[in-house]
């Protein structure tokens, strides 16, 4: 390799490297989704979606409790937003609605972790002193039909509550809901299950932990859950 070729290679490599590094440093600094344990499993049984809540429910948060608590936590109410999406993309697994489910990183309960990945573990390692684990209670659980598989490819909602079609206040450990019982539910496609979590020992509203499920076969009442994604707000 002569000098000119080496120089060219050096310039190309350093140019691409510098641009890549800049993109990495400046393109997205979003923290990863928060870790939590809220729903242990989703099952299907006799036409019903069975939501099995975790035995121990908690969320990781950067919330710093102060000692000026004014009153007990009062759930803010069931969300019914129909508004805009946030557009807060970032790193990590993003295959929800468009493939990539099988290779997505998994949560402790086995759900695919939206926006999760190695960088998330790195972030938690680097910011260990900023996050704490808080025990939470589930003030409400909501279920909503998000849209067809095709529609989700272009318009998957961000983390957070959506316009719930059905809600359960202070749900039991297991919630069973017959998805075929209502017209708005009896469709293949994507469903969101959301849990409104509030601090058990802390006066703080941790808002919503959500799960997006792709359900098929609803017409013949033997539906299956093809994909289960945990969609958490960023910590």
């Amino acid at each position: 390799m002569n000098t000119s070729m080496r120089r060219r290679k050096f310039l190309y490599t350093s140019g691409l490297g510098a641009l890549g590094a800049l993109a990495g440093c400046l393109g997205s600094k979003s923290p990863p989704p928060r870790k939590s344990s809220v729903v242990a499993d989703f099952e299907t049984s006799d036409g019903s979606l069975v939501i099995d809540l975790a035995d121990e429910t908690w969320v990781m948060s950067r919330y710093e409790p102060n000692h000026q608590s004014i009153s007990g936590v009062s759930p803010i109410g069931i969300a019914s937003a129909k508004g805009k999406g946030g557009g807060v993309g970032g790193r990590g697994a993003t295959g929800r609605g468009s493939g990539g489910y099988s290779s997505a990183p998994r949560t402790k309960h086995g759900h695919a972790w939206f926006y999760g990945g190695d960088y998330a573990d790195d972030w938690y390692e680097d910011h260990g002193n900023e996050v704490s684990r808080y025990g939470v209670g589930i003030a409400a659980l909501g279920i909503a039909y998000l849209g067809s598989t095709e529609a989700m490819k272009d318009d998957a909602p961000d983390a957070g509550p959506v316009a719930w079609d059905e809600t359960f206040d202070n749900p039991d450990d297991t919630v069973a809901y017959d998805l075929t019982s209502r017209n708005e539910f009896n469709r293949d496609g994507w469903y969101r299950v959301g849990t409104h979590v509030v601090g058990s020992d802390t006066d703080h509203d941790f808002r919503w932990e959500c799960y997006d499920l792709e359900v098929t076969g609803l017409g013949d009442e033997k539906f299956t859950i093809e994909e289960q994604w945990k969609v958490s707000p960023r910590i």
Partner: peptide, 15 residues
């Protein structure tokens, strides 16, 4: 832009 495209790619393309 499909959500599967990483934001870093969009960042680089825009520059």
């Amino acid at each position: 832009i499909p959500q599967s495209i990483p934001s870093e790619v969009i960042w680089m393309t825009a520059r």
